[in-house]
């Protein structure tokens, strides 16, 4: 055990409500004249059981925020909490364990190990941890995502939409505190994109899961419970229960601001 429990978790009762939280986070790349502030004193929190969307112009720091929240990347300053644990206090080994238990990922593309079947890909995080996946939960995911007859296929034999659904199943497999998705529908046509988002929505609602999704598509954002707007590494606005139109509107006003 660590010497101080205090530094590792936040005492506040409220924190248990939060799946992920970033407090005064800065992330800079480069140095001197060429320094880039990808995240600039950013504070944001993500409630459990909620579908969050992050939007913002290209280069606004969306991906960087996601990576920092997920512990894939270090912050330059500030604190990141995942399921109540301060990432800064973890060793690389502990972070790895966290990644496979407390976090799930869906990237824009290349989500699956090509040599493994769909099912093996889904089971990968639990098997890496030496655990057996709850068969009921697996069945639920497979059913919800409509992957029943695709489980023995290798990624190469699946369509792009199917691949993303397998990736989603993998992301939810360990019932993580939060699933991060970076433009998961970016490489999909609107129909497969829509069904993926609908599935994620369903899992979040029925099974108390949490999703933080980066997107630049207002329609995709409309599946979320809440949209956070990012520009130049800062949160500039927020929207609850968004519809595509509301998001589009807000984007326009924000766009004219900057």
């Amino acid at each position: 055990m660590q010497t101080s429990q205090q530094t590792k978790s936040v005492d506040s009762v409220e924190e248990t409500r939060l799946a992920a939280q970033a407090i005064n986070v800065r992330k800079t790349y480069g140095s001197g004249d060429t320094v880039v502030r990808a995240l600039d004193d950013l504070t944001v929190s993500f409630e459990r059981g909620t579908f969050h969307a992050i939007m913002g112009p290209s280069g606004s720091g969306k991906s960087t925020l996601l990576h920092c929240l997920a512990g894939l990347d270090d912050v330059s300053s500030g604190d990141v909490f995942l399921g109540g644990v301060n990432l800064a206090t973890l060793t690389e080994q502990e972070r790895t364990v966290l990644r496979r238990t407390a976090v799930g990922f869906v990237f824009q593309s290349f989500n699956l190990i090509p040599t493994l079947t769909a099912e093996e890909n889904v089971l990968l995080p639990s098997r890496l941890g030496g655990q057996k996946m709850d068969p009921e939960w697996l069945a639920t995911l497979v059913r919800t995502l409509g992957l029943e007859d695709r489980l023995t296929h290798k990624p190469g034999e699946l369509s792009g939409g199917q691949q993303q659904r397998v990736a989603a199943a993998r992301a939810f497999a360990t019932r993580p505190d939060v699933v991060f998705a970076d433009e998961p529908t970016g490489a999909l046509d609107s129909i497969s994109g829509g069904s993926l988002l609908a599935f994620m929505r369903e899992i979040v609602e029925k099974h108390e899961q949490t999703v933080v999704m980066v997107t630049h598509d207002p329609t995709a954002a409309s599946y979320a419970d809440r949209v956070v707007f990012l520009a130049d590494g800062r949160i500039i606005d927020e929207l609850s229960d968004p519809t595509a139109d509301k998001v589009l509107d807000r984007m326009k006003t924000l766009g004219s601001h900057s």
Binding site: L112, I113, G129
Partner: peptide, 16 residues
């Protein structure tokens, strides 16, 4: 490289 990155991202340890 990407595949290895992915494995690391989903929780494979350096030792594994």
């Amino acid at each position: 490289t990407r595949e290895i990155g992915l494995l690391r991202a989903v929780g494979m340890t350096g030792f594994q």
